[in-house]
C-alpha cells in the first residue's frame, strides 16, 4: 500500500518540475550527423548539375515552340483518329486475346507452382528451415524485375514467347508464393493441432481445412497477379518479341511509324486494362474486408 502511495507521489513530482527535459538541448531536434550531411551534399551537387545542364543543352535546329505544337498535333492524330491500314478491328482484338492468353498461361503456371511453394513457405505448415529457405529464394526472385528474368531466359530460349512465358511465370511464382503463404498462415496453429490430434494427416488437413478457409483470398490474389501479368504481357510483346498486341504496338511505332495505329492499339489496351482493373478493385475490396 505504501509503495503505491509513493509511486503516486512520484507522478506528481514529475509534473511539477518537468525534469524529463533537463540537460537536453531541444533546438537540435535533427542533429547534423554524418549521413544527413552526406545527403545534403549530394542534393546540392545534383541541383548544380541540373542547372548547368539546362543552360548548356544543345538545341541544334529545334525550334522549341514548334516542337511543342508538333507533339500536340501528333497526340491529336493518335487519340482522335485511331485507325489501322494493316489490320481490322477484329484482327487487333485477336492480338489482344493472344496477349491475354500469355497473361493467363503465366498466371496459371505461377499459381499451380506457387500453391505448393506457398504451403511449404507457411510457418504453420512446414518446418522453420524449409519456410526460411523458400521465403529467401522467393524474395530474391521478386527483387529482380520481370523483364530481366525474361531477358535472362532469352539467353537459353531465344527472344520470343518461350522466354516470356518462362520469365513471367518465374516472377508470378514468387509473387503468389508470398501472397498464398500469408493467406495460409492466417489459419491458427491450434486448429491444425486439433485436426492432427484427430488422426488427420498433412495432405488431408491442407485440402480440407487450409485451402478451403483461404480460398477466396487465393482467388483474389491470383486475379490481381493476372492483371499485373496482362500489363507485363503487353510490355513483353514489345520488348521481347513475344507476339500479341504489344508486338503490334512495337511494329507500329518503331517500324511503320503509323500514329493512327498506335492510337487504335492504345485504346484497345486501355479498354481491357480498365475492365480488369474494375474486377480487381472489387477483389481488393474483399481482401481488405478480411477480419
Amino acid at each position: 500500500m505504501t509503495q503505491i502511495e509513493e509511486s503516486i507521489k512520484g507522478w506528481g513530482r514529475l509534473k511539477e518540475k518537468g525534469h524529463i527535459n533537463d540537460g537536453m538541448d531541444l533546438s537540435a531536434v535533427k542533429p547534423l550527423n554524418k549521413s544527413s550531411l552526406a545527403m545534403r551534399i549530394i542534393l546540392l551537387f545534383l541541383s548544380v548539375l541540373t542547372i548547368y545542364a539546362l543552360f548548356t543543352i544543345d538545341y541544334k535546329s529545334i525550334d522549341v515552340p514548334k516542337a511543342f505544337a508538333d507533339t500536340i498535333s501528333n497526340f491529336k492524330t493518335i487519340f482522335l483518329h485511331p485507325y489501322s491500314h494493316r489490320f481490322s478491328l477484329w484482327e487487333a482484338f485477336y492480338e489482344v486475346v493472344v496477349t491475354i492468353g500469355l497473361a493467363f498461361l503465366t498466371t496459371l503456371f505461377g499459381a499451380v507452382i506457387a500453391l505448393l511453394f506457398g504451403l511449404l513457405a507457411a510457418q504453420n505448415l512446414a518446418p522453420k528451415q524449409v519456410t526460411n529457405m523458400i521465403k529467401a529464394f522467393v524474395a530474391f526472385i521478386r527483387a529482380v524485375p520481370t523483364i530481366l528474368w525474361v531477358l535472362i531466359f532469352a539467353v537459353a530460349a531465344g527472344l520470343g514467347s518461350a522466354a516470356a512465358v518462362i520469365g513471367m511465370t518465374f516472377h508470378s511464382v514468387s509473387y503468389l508464393t508470398k501472397a498464398y503463404s500469408e493467406s495460409f498462415e492466417d489459419l491458427d496453429r491450434n486448429v491444425l493441432e486439433a485436426l492432427t490430434a484427430s488422426g488427420a494427416n498433412w495432405w488431408q488437413i491442407v485440402f480440407q481445412a487450409v485451402i478451403p478457409s483461404s480460398a477466396t483470398y487465393l482467388l483474389s490474389w491470383t486475379f490481381l497477379r493476372f492483371e499485373i501479368n496482362f500489363a507485363n504481357a503487353v510490355a513483353m510483346g514489345a520488348a521481347a518479341g513475344a507476339a500479341g498486341i504489344g508486338f503490334d504496338l512495337f511494329m507500329a511505332s518503331e517500324f511503320y511509324f503509323d500514329l493512327r495505329e498506335i492510337g487504335l492499339i492504345t485504346y484497345l489496351i486501355l479498354a481491357f486494362a480498365i475492365a480488369l482493373e474494375t474486377i480487381s478493385l472489387r477483389m481488393k475490396g474483399r481482401l481488405h474486408k478480411r477480419t
Partner: peptide
C-alpha cells in the same frame, strides 16, 4: 474450440472422420 472458422458446422464436424480415411479420400473430402 480450434474450429475452422470459415467452414460450416457440418464441415467441421466431419473433419473428425478424416483419420479413418485414405489420404486421397480425405483430400477429396
Amino acid at each position: 474450440y480450434n474450429l475452422v472458422d470459415r467452414l460450416t458446422v457440418l464441415e467441421n464436424v466431419l473433419h473428425g472422420r478424416l483419420g479413418y480415411k485414405s489420404t486421397l479420400a480425405g483430400v477429396l473430402g
